[in-house]
Design a protein around this nucleic acid. Structure first.
Lengths: 229, 229
DNA sequence: CCAAAAGTGTTCGGAATACACCCATGA
DNA sequence: TCATGGGTGTATTCCGAACACTTTTGG
């Protein structure tokens, strides 16, 4: 590239955004917040920021997640690039979006609140700035497919969880109701979860807490397992 | 953004690349060519080019495809962004990659030859410049998944095709052998293909030519059909 | 004693898989 | 006449889907 060409071509900006899905045992949620500066001050939008030319984007997204939630690790994957010409009034900014999965617990709730984060319900996403609604839609589609074929639902649950919680999670992300008996049959057949000694006090009857068999999970993901809900 | 910030942030380049899969009735292939200028002159790489800040990328990719193959339409989808910091010595260039599916006929072979394109076998991709091997790997994974669930194989076949060709295509892209009888059963059950009056002279026995039921395809894609090989 | 969630088996139909031989024809 | 690819049917197994009652316990 000549200097002239560089002047023409090296004029893009790069932003990274994150669709953070969280599950609290009851509902599937997405983290958004309100923009603090112009343009679009006050508008809702996804967590994200501009990237510098010497920065890798993956660590930025991890850092974003840590900053907003306090979580160290999570399932995380790039969605795709959103490269429309007029998506951002500041210039031609390419957005590369990721999605991540976390379990929402008390600690995280406090953290996100401190950071002015807002957990909105999976199917009640408000109007967002830029093309962020489009990004969320794309992320939801991806999540639905992934949940069907890989046991990534486990990333959204605490270490110990009940079958009821697991089923609710699947129902929310697939957006349909599942039969309790068939659900149990399928989950147990996969042998991905192990019952523990512990129980969770329910409003009436207690329920058994399960944990996730990580070894088995590793093996299954390696050979491209199909979970198939 | 202040001017100062723009100087820091708006320094990225954007390139679009395309993994073009083609099927000639026998083998599944990928189009590559050789770089004509420095850096990496002579190296193999994917079709692609730099994007200007006022250009949308989708049309550029379509234009690329048309330029290299002469084809007007094809199945086409963004893969994802490849945003590594040091992938390109010219600067921080973000690559957004697409893949597309075409049928290779005589006419296209002439066109690609004229454009110095090289059709290499699906499982014999040579070393490519930049991170293009990584892009091709990603595209192959995507193609495998898509072929399993959507009848996109039809984009890779001529208007009239034999069951044998269709089966070969599936075998190549899934990289496994399929049982002839079971394959036919499944394909016919889907009712996506219609027999025609025509036959194709085989080396021995002639074989019936089929065409693709486009109306049925439309309906099935609308309601999120699962083909499932 | 009742409301609410936990837990538990069976039946049926459809699909996937495995498997072997005849046919037509050009060489 | 034989080598090559086209074409065809059945039996078994497995999985998904539909479906209803009992158990526990706090209020």
């Amino acid at each position: 590239m000549t200097q002239e060409e560089k002047d023409i071509y090296l004029k893009f900006g790069l932003a990274g955004s994150m669709v953070l899905f969280g599950f609290d045992g009851e509902d599937l949620k997405v983290l958004i917040h309100q923009k603090k500066d112009e343009p679009f001050k006050g508008a809702y939008l996804l967590p994200g920021r501009y990237i510098k030319t010497d920065e890798a984007i993956d660590p930025v997204i991890k850092e974003l997640m840590h900053h907003h939630t306090g979580a160290e690790y999570a399932y995380m994957e790039q969605l795709k690039a959103f490269p429309k010409v007029f998506r951002n009034p500041e210039g031609r900014i390419i957005n590369i979006s990721y999605y991540a999965l976390v379990k929402i617990d008390e600690e995280m709730l406090q953290k996100t609140e401190k950071r002015k984060g807002i957990w909105v319900n999976y199917d009640e996403i408000p109007d967002l700035a830029y093309d962020h609604n489009e990004i969320v839609e794309y992320a939801k589609e991806r999540l639905k497919r992934r949940v069907k074929r890989r046991p990534i639902g486990f990333f959204l649950l605490p270490k110990l969880f009940t079958i009821g919680e697991l089923q609710k999670l699947y129902e929310k992300s697939l957006n349909k109701e599942l039969d309790k008996r068939n659900f149990r049959k399928k989950i147990f057949k996969s042998e991905l979860i192990i019952p523990t000694e512990h129980t969770k006090p329910g409003p009436r009857k207690d329920s058994v807490l399960y944990k996730f068999d990580e070894d088995k999970y590793e093996k299954l993901t390696l050979k491209g397992y199909d979970f198939l809900f």
